[in-house]
Design a protein around this nucleic acid. Structure first.
Length: 571
RNA sequence: CGGGGUGUAGCGCAGUGGCUAGCGCACCUGCUUUGGGAGCAGGGGGCCGACGGUUCAAGUCCGUCCACCCCGACCA
């Protein structure tokens, strides 16, 4: 491709709306342009990257035996009602009505539609297992779209769904996809980590996320410094030592704590460490109030709490609800004698803890010397806290660290959630009917591009991994007025095309500085400069990643570039 | 949804209530320049987010709405 014909406009200044490097660079390099919040045009350069990523995904999915299909973006409300997700998915589901008033969803994911395909197609065990996938646009009305295509309302996703006759088959399908995903992300040149994850609104029994490690990632990951344990913070479990187990329990007594309603204020006032406090949070869960008691220095993990309660909606109770439930204003709730809630859940950080300080369920009052089991009876003791760096690994008890990541893939074991709700059944050898056992597997194609930039850039611009670069080589004649250089660039450009190398010829009538800056900004892995060396039939070859420069003779250039491409692609 | 911020040329930004709304970049023409975002000269491009109000006079003040960005979404 000739640069002058690509409608490729770069800009010098960062757009004011872009915060993170990938967003800034994608806009500056002319890859994307914002249409509205969370909606982007993919311009020619950006779209080439998407197609590169799609192609890698497609090749690996095909190699894994999956079948590509295409489902409609619109799906009828009835299907979503069958599984209950029409109401459960909430405001994130884009809904529209047709001219007759019939309701549709813009697909955020396609479990319902794929299950409908299978229930209408699969009748016999002989047709199983099957794994169907598609690559197209998904719609999610995100609370807050941000970071460019990283969290957009419309994005490109590969979604795959496996159907098996039993758990053993489903397990194998899951493992196959897990391995396939590792290959895909490796081929895309990403540094990533697979972590245990919560299944969220997709459901199912177990899931793993593939995280690209980056400071700007929206997800927090806990991982073990010794073994291979790694989990999303939503799911991660950390062990911690119990508080002073050898201390003898003292008598519980009320103390006056006027105006002290945060844990920090109470700890300071009573001169005890914050970890000695047990805070009591009152949640409103589907109209019922639930108390959660947790160590003062710890945070409740609402995903864990939701899962423990089987709840869909979870909000902290308002001041009136708290007053009604505890008899005290906000800040003085405690578990002892607490009558106004349905359940008292205690985080296991307080298991065997002694002599705690809690709220007194009376204004300006706290209780000291509180001992769980003696002074109050939790309904359940559960792990409900967020892991912190320094907690201990649940598998091997080594220290856990926290990192940040960008979720680029997620694989789920779904079980029979959808096949049962939508009656996707088959007959076995004995003529007996069974539900299909499902798995589902997503990859954020557009997010991979952003994640790759987040991991691979410098102050000059993008540094594409070769496999997903929009072009592999940029040819740069330094002076348009130098006919020998221009001519040689044209010849080499033709040779590149003949050799199957994707080349971009910078044929613009621009000064050298502009061309060099743009070559760096757009991040094309190999740059060929036709300048001073041309008189001696030499071409300068520079790698964008290492910055290494070498002079290559005119006769060897095609072979050299071809070999370097193969090396950089890891072939 | 709550809080904060911003809307002026394609992009980045100036602009005491007072003449025909500016600057840099980008764009077009010409001349010079030519290995790291050139110089000079000339030029094109604006519903100043929308609507309503105050005023002799509104980009500027007031109100309402809209869009976009950031933080938060309840940790007692």
């Amino acid at each position: 491709m000739r640069w002058s014909r690509t409608l490729l406009e770069t800009i010098k200044e960062n757009p004011s709306e872009a915060e993170v490097a990938s967003h800034q660079l994608m806009v500056r390099a002319g890859m994307i342009r914002k249409v509205a919040a969370g909606l982007y045009d993919y311009l020619p350069l950006g779209w080439r990257v998407m197609r590169k990523i799609e192609q890698i995904v497609r090749e690996e999915m095909d190699a894994a035996g999956a079948l590509e299909v295409q489902m409609p973006i619109l799906s009828p409300a009835e299907m979503w009602q069958e599984t209950g997700r029409w109401t459960q998915y909430g405001a994130e589901l884009f809904r529209i009505k047709d001219r007759h008033g019939r309701e549709f969803a813009l697909g955020p994911t396609h479990e319902e539609v794929i299950t409908d395909i299978v229930r209408r197609t699969v009748r016999s065990y002989r047709q199983l297992p099957v794994n169907l996938y598609q690559i197209h646009t998904k719609f999610r009305d995100e609370i807050r779209p941000r970071f460019g295509v990283m969290r957009a309302r419309e994005f490109i996703m590969k979604d795959a769904y496996s159907f098996d006759r039993d758990e053993i088959g489903a397990e194998a399908a899951y493992d196959k996809m897990f391995q396939t995903y590792q290959r895909i992300f490796q081929r895309c040149g990403l540094r990533f980590k697979a972590v245990e994850a919560d299944s969220g609104s997709i459901g199912g029994s177990f899931s793993s996320e593939f995280m690209v490690l980056a400071e700007t990632g929206e997800e927090a990951i806990a991982s073990c410094t010794q073994c291979n344990y790694a989990a999303n913070i939503e799911k991660a479990v950390g062990k911690l030592p119990v508080i002073s187990p050898e201390e003898t329990p003292i008598t519980m007594e009320m103390v006056s704590t006027p105006g002290k309603h945060t844990v920090e204020e109470v700890a300071e006032f009573l001169q005890v460490p914050i970890s000695r406090l047990a805070k009591t949070l009152i949640y409103a869960v589907d109209k019922i109030l639930v108390a959660v008691v947790i160590r003062g220095d710890r945070e409740v993990n609402e995903v864990k709490l939701k899962n423990a309660l089987g709840a869909q909606e979870l909000v902290l109770a308002g001041p009136e609800q708290i007053q009604a439930a505890t008899g005290a204003p906000v800040g003085f709730a405690g578990p002892c004698g607490l009558q106004g809630v349905g359940r008292i859940l205690m985080d296991d950080s307080l298991h065997q803890a002694v002599n705690l300080v809690t709220g007194g369920n009376r204004a300006d009052t706290h209780a000291q010397g509180v001992n769980p089991g003696r002074d109050f009876q939790p309904t359940q003791i559960l792990d409900l806290k967020n892991v912190r760096a320094g907690d201990l690994c649940p598998k091997c008890s080594a220290v856990l660290t926290l990192e940040r990541g960008i979720e680029v893939g997620h694989v789920f074991k779904l079980g029979m959630k959808y096949s049962r709700a939508m009656r996707a059944v088959f007959l076995d050898e004995g003529g007996e009917e069974h539900f299909c056992v499902m798995g589902c597997y997503g990859i954020g194609v557009s997010r991979i591009a952003a994640a790759a930039i987040e991991q691979n850039h410098d102050e000059h611009g993008i540094i594409w991994p070769l496999a997903i670069a929009p072009y592999q080589v940029v040819l740069l004649p330094v002076s348009p007025k130098d006919p020998r250089a221009a001519e040689m660039a044209e010849e080499v450009y033709a040779e590149m095309q003949a050799a199957g190398v994707e080349a971009l010829l910078d044929d613009r009538d621009e000064r050298a500085g502009i061309k060099f800056k743009d070559a760096d900004l757009t991040g094309i892995p190999i740059r060929l400069t036709f300048g001073r060396g041309v008189a001696e039939n030499m071409i300068e070859l520079k790698r964008r990643d290492t910055g290494a420069v070498e002079m290559v003779s005119r006769t060897e250039i095609a072979a050299r570039v071809k070999a370097l491409c193969e090396k950089m692609a890891g072939l």
